[in-house]
Write a protein that binds this DNA or RNA. Structure first.
Ligand SMILES: [Mn+2]
Ligand SMILES: [Mn+2]
Ligand SMILES: [Zn+2]
Ligand SMILES: [Zn+2]
Lengths: 143, 143
DNA sequence: CACTATTTGCAACTTAGTTGCAATGGAGAT
DNA sequence: ATCTCCATTGCAACTAAGTTGCAAATAGTG
């Protein structure tokens, strides 16, 4: 993905293009798993990013619907973007998270409409607006 | 539920019967929603329970499979028991959690085998062992 | 370039949950 | 009933992810 495409995504979401935002979005776009604050800091490497600024960047991205947060089993947050084929991030959260029991990586998957509708009518009186399927198991790399 | 039944459940799970464990289990058994550490402290009321002891009690219950933990959106834990008709708690975690956007209560539901198997084959190479369906919406009381 | 609203950096803070350790007490053995 | 031992409890100190306040820097607009 080109640098200009990263800037375009930021503009698309009405965010000012700053070095930190560009760097962070770049990291998220190129990861196939959800990343923690610490993961992102590590990936950025030497060019030290302020801890608070990174949290604020991630929260801004989340609020704008550019990325989404996933809670881990040990009360931390992981952050992930999901790009559609047209390079515009999806903002809905109707998809599955696979959590590997071995390496603890979290992967995002879209969920078929058929499966979704099967879940939507869980119980009378409860109005379902959004859903997340969390799967625990072993990822391909850990088998 | 009788006091002797509470003791029986503790014995069933190889746990010594102590006043705190009896009290906490009693609270959990009688709640239709998942409860936080603070909720449980409040429900117990005057008879002050030590904060650390309560955390340890809940973690022990969780490790033994007597209850399960559910992560909230604001990185806290809620705790819930699910009793089968025979009064023995289920230990599997293959069920749904409904999170009310309004009152933020979390409800537990069993999930039909049909829906479960539909989800199980999410993607080639990922071996699914356990699943949690998280639904967000409006509960009956908040509509 | 100059202006302004937004973003960044640093230090201090918050708070759910944990750890260490000494005192207490449940439950099986005698 | 009393003894004994190991699990459980209580208290204080600690941990660490994430937040808040505020002054300094900077993107974007003209
Ligand atoms: Mn996801
Ligand atoms: Mn549950
Ligand atoms: Zn793995
Ligand atoms: Zn509600």
């Amino acid at each position: 993905m080109l640098q200009s495409e990263i800037s375009d995504i930021l503009k698309e979401f009405n965010l000012k293009v700053t070095p930190i935002r560009t760097t962070v979005l770049n990291v998220l776009v190129h990861s196939d798993v959800a990343l923690s604050h610490a993961d992102i800091t590590d990936k950025i490497g030497d060019e030290s990013v302020d801890k608070v600024t990174l949290y604020r960047t991630l929260n801004t991205f989340n609020e704008k619907g550019l990325i989404h947060k996933v809670a881990t089993e040990d009360r931390n947050w992981l952050y992930a973007i999901m790009l559609k084929s047209n390079k515009i991030p999806v903002s809905e959260h109707d998809h599955a998270h696979f959590i590997c029991n071995s390496c603890e990586k979290i992967f995002c998957f879209p969920v078929s409409q058929h499966t979704q509708s099967g879940i939507a009518s869980i119980k009378e009186g409860f109005k379902v607006l959004e859903q997340e399927i969390r799967l625990h198991g072993i990822c391909p790399a850990c088998q």
